[in-house]
Design a protein around this nucleic acid. Structure first.
Lengths: 142, 142
DNA sequence: GGCAGAGTGTTGACTGATTCAAGTTTAGGG
DNA sequence: CCCTAAACTTGAATCAGTCAACACTCTGCC
């Protein structure tokens, strides 16, 4: 049912200093299957595979995987934290002001930071995050 | 001590459908005096003027003023809500990953949305919000 | 294959920003 | 000056996320 070959999550984990555990594999799978899902949704998806995982294990896994660079955390204003596996391509997001739906947008530049601040105030900038706010097709017609 | 003339907050409020109340004037003054301050800081600042305001009144005022367009709410990932009075010029923000400091950056374009998404997925976009992530001068030297 | 121990997971309590709701006060038009 | 909707007070509730103590299990090593 999945047209793309699922990544070899175990190999991804071994590529970092992280141990390979069932919760982590399940979290990677859940985020891959549900892009932009919030933590609650991820916990639900993980529990379909491992019914007894604690929410704490999911939180820990999400943090560890995010720190390792295998996940990206996004959190538009007014939303809870969301996660995605599409990392490394520096893409951006469209967010619906009404229903909160998130869609991916390719970054024309490709490498972070894709924009240069007009005045950096002495900051060393490594990323420019862009969020496009608007209404999704469903919400703009109603 | 303030080199810029403070805006006429009462006039701003009357320009909208909002009633002029002491908490609202104090909130406008507090946000103007403390750009990018979080709610707690704002409550503290307001209470120096009106010691007995409830936190709820400040929350209500912040929401009402934001909805009226007199304030702008910003909330970088991992931070609580912050507010600023500099609105209408579509400027962007520099955020320090280490200490959370926020600095303003002018938008080269000036009018929202300053960027056009490469593929809008049918969304009607009205704003492109840009957050530059990095380290502030103080944090990058330590 | 068995051991050891650092890294992970479980459990359950807790925090803190924000919201809800019921009742009281007040701004501002008539 | 009065009235009414809007705004404020009070106090409790919510909920994502975190903390901490203890139990378990990967993984490298013998």
């Amino acid at each position: 049912m999945c047209v793309v070959t699922p990544p070899d999550f175990e190999r991804l984990l071994r590529g970092t200093a992280l141990r390979v555990t069932r919760p982590r594999l399940a979290v990677l799978g859940a985020v891959h299957a549900h892009p932009h899902a919030d933590t609650d949704t991820i916990i639900g998806a993980v529990r379909r595979e491992i019914p007894k995982v604690s929410h704490q294990a999911v939180y820990d896994s999400l943090h560890a995987l995010t720190a390792a660079g295998l996940l990206r955390r996004i959190q538009p204003s007014g939303s809870v934290a969301r996660y995605e596996t599409r990392i490394g391509d520096n893409h951006h997001h469209l967010v619906c002001r009404s229903c909160g739906t998130i869609a991916d947008v390719d970054c024309a530049v490709g490498e972070a930071p894709c924009l240069t601040a007009s005045e950096d105030h002495g900051f060393s900038i490594d990323e420019a995050e862009v969020v496009y706010w608007g209404l999704c097709p469903a919400c703009s017609t109603s």
